[in-house]
Deep mutational scan, measured.
Amino acid sequence: MSRESDVEAQQSHGSSACSQPHGSVTQSQGSSSQSQGISSSSTSTMPNSSQSSHSSSGTLSSLETVSTQELYSIPEDQEPEDQEPEEPTPAPWARLWALQDGFANLECVNDNYWFGRDKSCEYCFDEPLLKRTDKYRTYSKKHFRIFREVGPKNSYIAYIEDHSGNGTFVNTELVGKGKRRPLNNNSEIALSLSRNKVFVFFDLTVDDQSVYPKALRDEYIMSKTLGSGACGEVKLAFERKTCKKVAIKIISKRKFAIGSAREADPALNVETEIEILKKLNHPCIIKIKNFFDAEDYYIVLELMEGGELFDKVVGNKRLKEATCKLYFYQMLLAVQYLHENGIIHRDLKPENVLLSSQEEDCLIKITDFGHSKILGETSLMRTLCGTPTYLAPEVLVSVGTAGYNRAVDCWSLGVILFICLSGYPPFSEHRTQVSLKDQITSGKYNFIPEVWAEVSEKALDLVKKLLVVDPKARFTTEEALRHPWLQDEDMKRKFQDLLSEENESTALPQVL
């Protein structure tokens, strides 16, 4: 008996699950189920560990084997000379395990699969056993689809999209007709009724959600790893209520002995410091949205989908001078704002400069500016000194954290500008005749005249004003913003236009 009217009423009120309206889709043409990776026989039982391990490696599972009696060998002398080797079968990115008779397991190899009674669906509900069930008529011709799209860092995100009359449910929550939600590992998919569980979705590319604290899981769906560094790992996640993407940084307390840091400095109150950081608001710094204190720290951040500045300059790639100017102007505005709010970044580098898009002209935002507030000064500097390429001379020669101030950030900005303009770092371990530390503390950077011949004198002058060993003589952010190279009204107008595109209400910060 159909429950279409009941569920449609529920759909009209929406769902609290991570779902959002989605535009129309072009329906895929039908194809045989076997060619799409559906096993030839149905099963109602969950797999054992041996079955799972075989399939996850990209080899055929026991459900897909063919009797050897149906095959015969071709003698080598009868092999056609022009026969080309077969292409290897792509490894599946996800697996659906059937929970009921009449449904088959599915190895997801393609990027898009339609499910329903219509014969054009890649996964067609046409098993005779299924057709005899009382629920068969409640399934729509095109009930739902599972697909994946390219996300940040060229990774993939799996989604389920509801197109049914009676509802598609993920972990008992209604997706909603015309809406989608991301699928995470071990999600249970039910059709027409929330208790009519048909599939379990296994994402073969992500970790299980159960490793994360419950308070975090209640608000966010964790997904793929976006990156990792000395101070922690960053994962893509989704807000459950809105389906908006965020980035979540995970900082290990054990790695940084944060408990010991608190004992050594009783004034170090991470929760208080995070609340201060959350109040920071500038178009060129990453917004801190939320914070969870569990076995590790979880910092929920605004997501930038254009990648890191590092990706644009790695491998001796240089940027156009006009692009360097647009990016560097924004970096200076961001660091100036942090300094005005009493925050020294201490870890400025291309990896911590994020881009809003893949376009050459785009907004940038500074991230990882609050680590000293979370990890403690000593722990952070011990970590950073392991990779000193961007560290100021006074940091390398000081004991502990004494003896330096916000000028350290201006040195790091000078190193970043040098790399963007030239395509190579000013200080490098590859210069074996002088140690990296000695290069930095003496201010002897690697200047290649033929490379810098293409760079304007004004740009080079600003680099020199920032890479000054004496912090008292080094340019401040205010002085850098007043430098002739940055007195470019076309560049500032472009920045204002980019801000307006992102948010019509965002105004250009005042600069002296």
Rank of each mutant, 00 (worst) to 15 (best):
S44C: 13
E149C: 03
Y113C: 06
S55L: 07
K177A: 05
L216S: 04
V175A: 02
R180F: 15
S28V: 11
R195S: 06
L183T: 01
S55F: 08
G176D: 03
E84P: 07
E271G: 11
F115N: 00
S44D: 09
V109L: 12
R132N: 09
S164C: 03
S44L: 07
P90L: 10
I74R: 14
T59E: 05
Q34L: 08
L226H: 03
P75H: 15
F103Q: 04
S12Y: 12
D134Q: 07
V206F: 07
F125W: 12
W114T: 07
E76K: 14
V246E: 09
N269C: 09
T138M: 05
G151A: 02
E86C: 12
H22K: 10
D101V: 14
P21N: 05
D111G: 11
A104G: 14
S5L: 08
P182D: 00
N185F: 13
V270Q: 15
V25D: 13
Y159T: 09
S49M: 07
R254W: 08
V198I: 08
F202S: 08
F144W: 01
C243P: 05
Y156W: 12
S53E: 08
L183D: 02
N184T: 06
R132T: 11
K142S: 11
V66A: 12
R132C: 12
H13C: 15
R217S: 05
G151W: 11
L183E: 13
K142P: 00
V270P: 08
A264L: 06
E271R: 13
L71M: 10
H54Q: 13
E233R: 10
G259C: 11
D101M: 13
Y123E: 15
P75V: 13
K224G: 04
L60H: 07
S2V: 13
G23T: 04
E84A: 04
H54R: 09
R254V: 01
E122V: 14
S187R: 06
L216P: 00
D203L: 00
D203G: 14
T242F: 03
S39K: 06
D111L: 14
E70R: 03
Q51L: 04
P90D: 03
S42I: 05
G178N: 05
Q20L: 11
S61Q: 03
G116M: 07
L96H: 01
S2C: 08
C108A: 15
K179T: 08
N269A: 02
Q78E: 11
S12E: 13
D82Y: 08
T138L: 03
S120H: 11
T59S: 08
F199H: 03
I189M: 05
T242Q: 05
H163P: 12
S164R: 03
V246T: 01
E76T: 13
R195W: 13
A267C: 11
G232V: 01
V170L: 04
